[in-house]
Nucleic acid binder design. Structure first.
Lengths: 112, 112
DNA sequence: GTGAAGTACCTTGACAGGCGAGGTACTATA
DNA sequence: TATAGTACCTCGCCTGTCAAGGTACTTCAC
């Protein structure tokens, strides 16, 4: 992993919700997609992922159901709820704002 | 404050170092600059700021000295060290990478 | 001359999120 | 038979943020 988890901290929920916005999925798969999308430069640790699922489900942002397993173990699928959708859009716009602010704060006059 | 500190977490060191790259400064002033640059949408809490100073000084990335106070209390100035400069450039490029990856991870096909 | 507001620093303790380490259970392949 | 892959889950530590509290000096209004 080339970027540390702390750099992403506070945005993991956004990542997960954004993934579920594309359709139901399960932990193991989401992790792989994240790894692929980031070209292997970032991956959520399993412990982080499953704690996030638990948190998001408690908040009512996602709902889970046991789904047909393919080759291997049983899978717990997650679906985004309407409140999760809302939360996702809010988090996405927060990310845009974070970027904007950070870019301003990190500006250094004419240095690498 | 319109964006939470946790969204910035992991980047506070970068912010502080980037500010010190512009010249020596002291806590209270840095905080005001951050607040101004972000149009008041973000401010580091004092506790966070001073813990960060301590951490950065222990790492050798900044050095401090007591400076002439203006109107008000005495000031502790901070200067960035060569190792701090290096760290700052590294953190800046990490930020660029974080942005890039996050943008990919948050992509949602044709949704707000 | 006193009280409030601004400047400026610092510490303590609680809290939350990330994650290393460990565990379970099933299937396919060598 | 064992190894590797799929897939899930929990415990406990660590680190960074921050609310709350404290100190000390100056300036200005009343």
């Amino acid at each position: 992993m080339s970027i540390a988890g702390d750099l992403i901290r506070g945005h993991t929920d956004a990542i997960i919700l954004a993934r579920l916005l594309q359709g139901d999925s399960y932990g193991y798969e989401i992790n792989k997609v994240i790894s692929t999308l980031s070209s292997g430069r970032f991956e959520l640790k399993e412990a982080t992922l499953y704690t996030a699922f638990k948190r998001l489900e408690e908040l009512g942002h996602i709902a889970s159901y046991w789904g047909g397993s393919g080759p291997g173990a049983r899978r717990r699928y997650y679906a985004i709820t309407p409140s999760g959708r809302e939360a996702c859009y809010r988090l996405l716009s927060e990310w845009r704002e974070t970027k904007e602010i950070m870019d301003k704060l990190l500006e250094t006059e004419g240095k690498p």
